[in-house]
Amino acid sequence: MRKLRRYGPPLALIAPSVFLIGVFVYGLIIASFQTSMTDAHTSAQFTGVQETHFVGLQNYIDILKTDNFQHSLRNLLLYTVVFLSGTMFFGFLWAFLLDKRARAEGFIRSVYLFPMAVSSIAAGVVWKWLLNANTGARASGLNRLFQLIGLDFLQNKWWSNYNWGIAAIAIPAIWQMSGYVMALFLAGFRGIPNELREAARVDGANEWQLYRHVIFPQLSPVALSAIIIIGHMSLKGFDLIVAIAKPASYETRVPAIDMYQFQTEGNYANASTVGIILLLVVLVLIVPYLVHTARAEKNR
């Protein structure tokens, strides 16, 4: 009775959230998994007009076998690699350049960061145009800019490239998220105690040695967080691709797009299957990280 008095109110307060997450996250993942193991490939089956049958993991096998989905997975990998390396490179470079106090630092930082306040759909409007595939006399966007500054050889088909198109979509993604990675790294740089720098200088380290041996090693936790965050974002990449290319275009397909395509076609079994595959890919990335941070927090 006393326990109920003591713990009743906080449990009552958190119960609605636990219920909602229980249903909308855990319950729906289970339901999704169930649908992915049926042959509900038509709307009629989904709404219950026609019956569905249990097919086990057949949908997973079938989808993973298709050329389309293999292309999507390859695209996802390519997109993630380009997006990650781009944001890490620029984010780190900008933070490094800003670390030692620049003039108008606040303004510069805000400008670097602002693209992430803009929706991918709005960013897509201008980037679709910047990444226009036309070259020569009909060139616009970046291809036209390259002509103007005499770098004609850089003109290319961007996202319309059959095999590498998805890498072009990563360019606006890098534009959007580099500032964020910069903010993470800058926080890392500034979090290093001043005494540490001073001590290294007193010991006779030059600037490069100071960064190489004292500061950079301190940044590895930040780098790991940044990789996890950006990697996580890239696995779910959807908005930007839809805004720039058409959902149906083969060049820029990724699993998130496939899922959308299957759902709009009424192929709910396949849509669920792709969704669950995507979840598994995300978990492979996230779970080790969560275990790692949980351990680190315990040891603290």
């Binding site: 996580h232 696995l235 779910k236 759902q263």
Partner: peptide
């Protein structure tokens, strides 16, 4: 338990969510 909801790709719940 609650935090896990932050990491899932929403594609994984979209079909039954619709229902």
């Amino acid at each position: 338990f609650l935090l896990f909801g932050m990491f899932i790709p929403y594609q994984a719940v979209m079909v039954p969510l619709y229902k």
